[in-house]
Amino acid sequence: MSGTVAAALATAGVLGVTHAIEPDHVAGISSLTAEYGDSRLSALAGACFSLGHVALVVVWLVVASVLLGRTDFPPLYDHLGTVGAGILLGLLGVAMAVTGVRRVLRTDTHTHGEVTHSHPHLHLPLPGFDSHDHSHDARSYLKTGLVGALFTLSPPVSMLVFATTLLPGTGPGVVSLAVLTYAVGITATMSLLGAGVGAAFGRLGEHSATVHGAAQAVAGGAVVTLATLLLVDASAALL
């Protein structure tokens, strides 16, 4: 492998990692995985999110570079994409906060002889797994991937410019390998983010469902705040 190809692949990997840790992506993955309380399933959710994300990046690359022969788009494209991501992120944040509040308030009552105990009611519908029988559900995987794709409504400018700059000197084979490296970087990073969030909330859940729910509610409020800031900035740019 030549030094040029190695440098190109390293750059693609770095672009994938830095793209994955953008605040809206971290918030989106957190809102999807905080409910699980399990690092393995949360990592799986992060991977599904990233695969949908990567799929739309590839679509952008093909349409922009191959079909249209361009890498620059009017700012309107980016602003509209940000509005869409902000709305989606806001909805995810609200759902996360509501789920947390419900976890705090909801209990199941069990009677043992003459003694009645109240236990937190936990039902965790996981992507691809039911919280009781752990059966596979392809539709849940697809829904998580779709959410990831919707976070890529704006043109991925850095990857578009990189791929177009790389193509004349290295050819389509190296560009394809660079895109694959970029995809691996995004997927690995988003999986780790999901696993970290799942492990953190799992630890909270070990203490009590109330603590888990309260943390979810607070985190959901933070996600909604971020979404609001994105919408305000994008709306101001459109006006």
Rank of each mutant, 00 (worst) to 15 (best):
S2N: 15
G3L: 14
T4A: 15
V5E: 12
A7H: 07
L9H: 08
G16Y: 04
H19P: 05
H19E: 06
P23F: 11
D24Y: 08
V26W: 14
V26R: 06
S30W: 04
S30V: 08
S31C: 10
A34P: 00
E35R: 15
Y36K: 13
G37D: 04
D38W: 05
D38R: 07
S39R: 13
S39Y: 09
R40K: 14
L41V: 10
L41T: 07
L41F: 02
S42Q: 06
A43I: 04
A45K: 04
F49Y: 15
S50V: 07
V54L: 07
V54D: 01
A55T: 12
V57P: 04
L61R: 11
L61P: 07
V63W: 13
L67E: 09
L68E: 09
D72N: 10
D72V: 15
D78P: 00
D78N: 06
H79G: 02
L80G: 05
L80M: 04
L80P: 00
T82I: 07
T82R: 03
I87P: 01
L88V: 11
L91F: 07
L91T: 11
L92K: 02
V94P: 02
G100Q: 09
R102A: 15
V104H: 05
L105Y: 04
T107C: 04
T107L: 08
D108A: 13
H110S: 02
T111S: 11
G113V: 05
E114M: 09
E114G: 00
V115L: 13
T116P: 13
H117F: 15
H117G: 02
H121C: 08
H121E: 14
H121Q: 13
H123G: 11
L124N: 04
P125A: 06
L126K: 15
G128A: 05
F129I: 00
F129H: 10
D133N: 12
S135K: 13
A138Q: 01
R139V: 12
S140A: 14
T144Y: 10
L146A: 10
F151M: 12
S158F: 00
L160C: 07
V161L: 09
T164D: 12
T165E: 14
L166Q: 12
T170S: 14
G171F: 01
V174E: 11
V174A: 12
L177D: 07
A178N: 08
V179D: 02
T181W: 00
T181R: 01
A183M: 04
V184Y: 00
I186D: 01
T187A: 08
T187Y: 03
T189K: 02
T189D: 02
M190P: 00
S191A: 15
G194T: 06
G194I: 07
A195T: 03
G196Y: 04
E206T: 10
H207A: 12
V211H: 09
Q216M: 15
A222E: 05
V224P: 02
T228M: 06
L229K: 13
L229M: 14
L231S: 05
L231G: 10
L231M: 08
V232P: 06
D233C: 01
A237V: 08
